[in-house]
Design a protein around this nucleic acid. Structure first.
Length: 562
RNA sequence: UGGGGGAUGGUCUAACGGCAAGACAGCGGACUCUGACUCCGCUUAUCGGGGUUCGAAUCCCUGUCCCCCAGCCA
């Protein structure tokens, strides 16, 4: 991929400033970052922000960024997620090279460090159960109480910890805790749990272990072992930083990475927590993790978003410390501007209305030449079949149009894009329902190609597809998954209550230019005057593409109508 | 109510003691064989109160509001 900063003029965010200072001062010769997902679900747009930050910093500095799976809780983690996450990071355009790690790779060393902690008198095996631990922890305003097991001897702790490891105890009966300060105003420092017993198979270590280290303990040590310089995480870990530092200082690790926190991404009209996304999948509210309505990386990919558009979006929104809400429109804008540059233009009719050109010879057919991109002649042209019967968009005809309607209506003349001027001469309706079923037009043969030799102008140009040559296909229109800006806002109402019932519209009778029969799965086109669509990778068959609408074109006419 | 953070137009980000800037959205216009794109113009902001200073979004004091934390999740 293109390694250059997409926005060289953009001022440095506060994290990049810190890194630049650390390089300038000689503290580090180069930054080393890491992206540390837990393999318990698919990556989403919020992760993309972190990926672009961590891998972006590495790229800009010709340095490395590690991909590290934070797999310390086997009850939630699966290999299938590891594979999906790797695919998504790569698809976004980033490479970790040799720097692929798993926290589970460190289980032995982590165990040794825990033994060290015990020897230092800084950790103890606690026999309080989970509920008791909670009670002893105190509250936000009251200090906690020390565990009765807090002052066991080093020898006893060593023996007990080994017995934990050997599986001699039941889940929940014992934990290893750091001995810090039960009166600390920071709850994370009130003797946090370091190891817990879990008799669960791990997706990589199998049944080797029945005790697993906690995040706070694992993360800082993993960072240190990998010699990460800047450990970037989201704001909710600010309170954990003292603990992060405590472990590193207490254990005298060879490196002491600096944790820096930034604001996580919030987007309107969606939910961002993995827990909730999982509910949408398991509850059948969406087809799967890669449902095009989902803001997972895989969903965005299937929807037709490009890696560049996501990277640009992440660059656009910046990195700061204030909890912010980005409007969904910003994301949509980023894919529109990318596809505007690259997507070939074609004509496709989503809601067909038949037009018979009565003065066009029945046996005739011909081809007209269309540009694949109006501003990029290098993208070439194509020939589009034209004949006596065509389809136009139903919304491009009105029997009784308002003043500013530039499209087809009785007696009105419009241009069929790249073809001819046509004038509506009559309207055929279903006698019982009154619905327009067909319209009859005449064409002006002199306007072949779309220009009138007499210089007369038409206000409207509409798209069309020859009825005899068009390719029938399915098109799926996607709208926002939620009907409200913040589905999480109301604590009393489940977020799923706010699902948008019209988030998916399947159109089965669409007809598109025959050239699209060969469109490659995953490729994007612009249906002129409609929007950007991609060929679905799952449901398309050779010769029978299925299109997903990535995003509509801006539509100032529709806006005016409201 | 303890601790940790944060407050700049509708939204996001910049300005690091010296003309409050950019993007998105919105509004108006130009152009147009896409009511697209592009271009031009416009509206809208430093949380409040004090202080330091020739000069404050920036430094100090004070108040207010918002977010996070009481998993053997990450």
């Amino acid at each position: 991929m293109d390694n250059s900063d997409p926005n060289p003029e953009k001022p440095l965010d506060f994290i990049r400033q810190i890194i630049a200072e650390d390089i300038k001062s000689g503290k580090h010769s180069a930054p080393v970052t890491r992206f540390p997902p837990e393999p318990n679900g698919f990556l989403h747009i919020g992760h993309a922000k972190s990926i672009c930050l961590n891998f972006g910093i590495a790229q800009e500095n010709n340095a490395r960024c590690h991909l590290r799976f934070d797999d310390t809780n086997p009850s939630k983690e699966e290999s299938v997620y590891v594979a999906a996450i790797k695919k998504d990071v790569q698809w976004l355009g980033y490479e970790w090279g040799d720097n692929l790690f798993f926290a589970s790779d460190y289980f032995d060393r982590l165990y040794d460090y825990a033994v060290e902690l015990i020897r230092l008198g800084k950790a103890y095996v606690c026999c309080l159960n989970a509920e008791e631990v909670r009670e002893y922890r105190g509250t936000l305003t009251e200090p906690g109480k020390e565990s009765p097991y807090r002052n066991r001897s080093v020898e006893e702790n060593l023996a007990l910890f080994q017995a934990m490891k050997e599986g001699q105890f039941e889940e929940g009966s014992h934990v290893l805790r750091a001995k810090i300060d039960m009166a600390s105003p920071n709850l994370n420092m009130r003797d946090p749990v370091v190891y817990r017993i879990m008799k669960v198979s791990h997706h990589r270590t199998g049944d080797k272990w029945c005790i697993y280290p906690m995040y706070d303990y694992t993360h800082c040590l993993s960072d240190a072992m990998e010699e990460i310089t800047h450990s970037l995480c989201t704001l909710e870990f600010e309170d954990h930083r003292p603990l992060y530092n405590w472990f590193l200082e207490t254990l005298h690790t060879p490196a002491h990475p600096r944790q820096i926190e930034f604001a996580r991404l919030n987007l309107t009209y969606t939910v961002m927590s993995k827990r909730k996304i999982l509910q949408l999948v398991t509850g059948g509210h969406v087809a799967d993790w890669d449902d095009p309505r989902m803001l997972t990386i895989s969903g965005l990919r299937r929807r037709g978003y490009t890696p560049a558009s996501i990277r640009n979006f992440c660059s656009e929104i910046g990195v700061g410390k204030k909890a912010s809400w980005i409007d969904m429109g910003v994301l949509e804008n980023s894919i529109r501007s990318d596809l505007n540059e690259t997507a070939p233009r074609v004509m496709g009719v989503l809601d067909p209305l038949k037009v018979v050109i009565t003065n066009y010879p029945e046996e005739n057919e011909e081809e007209v030449e269309g540009k694949n991109h109006p501003q990029k002649p290098e993208m070439g042209t194509r020939f589009i079949p034209f004949s006596r019967e065509i389809y136009i968009e139903r919304s491009d005809f009105m029997e009784d149009p308002p003043k500013k309607f530039f499209r087809l209506g009785p007696g009105r003349e419009v241009r069929l894009r790249y073809a001819y001027f046509v004038t509506c001469v009559s309207v055929i309706k279903d006698e019982t329902t009154g619905v327009v079923t067909e319209i009859h037009c005449t064409y002006d043969p002199a306007t072949y190609g779309g220009n009138a030799p007499d210089g007369r102008k038409v206000k409207g140009t509409i798209h069309w597809v020859s009825a005899a040559h068009g390719l029938n296909c399915q098109v799926r229109l996607y709208d926002r998954l939620f009907a409200v800006e913040n589905p999480d806002a109301d604590k009393e109402v489940d977020f799923k209550e706010h699902l948008n019932p019209d988030s998916l519209t399947i159109l089965k009778d669409c007809v598109v230019e025959p050239s699209l029969a060969q469109a490659a799965p995953g490729s994007s086109v612009q249906f002129e005057r409609q929007g950007y669509f991609c060929v679905d990778v799952e449901d398309s068959e050779p010769g029978h593409p299925v299109f997903n609408r990535t995003v509509g074109l801006r539509d100032s006419w529709a806006k005016k109508q409201r």
